[in-house]
């Protein structure tokens, strides 16, 4: 009983039970670290990943709903050696303290900017309302997202 899906551009066959939340498939079966367990209740956003470009909470997403769909985690935004625009922005702004919530924030931001490249600050704040940060890194997270937005827009213009 395997479920076929794409994770960070690679086709995978997940063998977990179809009602297993995606979070545990990503972490426990596929060995990815970006999506984090925070509450399991859809309240904190630590487990946010993108599915078909939209931000979702993987802790409450049964595996069977992901069949044939494209999942992106923070590992899919770039690598340590070659970080992507969102990652570069967070690094440049030192936009983390403990960093536990940050991958979820980045995925939410990535989905928001993908859907709306010109998202205004208030729209970004609204989108992030679903993601909790306890260290109080909020101002930096916002700065990093604005920086990523600039970089992504410039890249689009150049292209």
């Amino acid at each position: 009983m395997a479920t076929g899906l794409t994770v960070n551009g690679e086709a995978v066959e997940a063998r977990s039970d179809p009602d297993t939340p995606l979070l545990y498939v990503l972490r426990d079966e596929l060995g990815l670290n970006g999506a984090k367990y925070g509450c399991g209740l859809g309240q904190c956003g630590s487990c946010t990943v993108m599915v078909d470009g939209e931000a979702v909470l993987s802790c409450l997403m049964p595996l069977l709903t992901v069949e044939g769909r494209e999942v992106t985690t923070v590992e899919g935004l770039g690598t340590l050696e070659e970080p992507g625009p969102m990652q570069r922005a967070f690094i440049a702004e030192n936009a983390a303290q403990c960093g536990y919530c940050i991958p979820g924030m980045m995925m939410r931001a990535q989905a928001t900017l993908t859907a709306n490249p010109d998202a205004k600050e208030v729209e970004i704040r609204q989108a992030l309302e679903y993601n909790l940060c306890r260290c109080g890194t909020h101002m930096r997270i916002l700065r990093a997202i604005r920086r990523a937005q600039d970089e992504m827009r410039n890249a689009t213009e150049e292209a």
Partner: peptide, 27 residues
């Protein structure tokens, strides 16, 4: 200076205790 722990944190490296997976681990 860029904080040394941030690049691994934003690229999904196994940097948290939650991310440890020694061989044979059970939950």
């Amino acid at each position: 200076m860029t904080r040394i722990d941030i690049p691994p944190k934003v690229t999904g490296q196994p940097i948290f205790v939650q991310d440890l997976r020694p061989e044979g681990m059970v939950h």
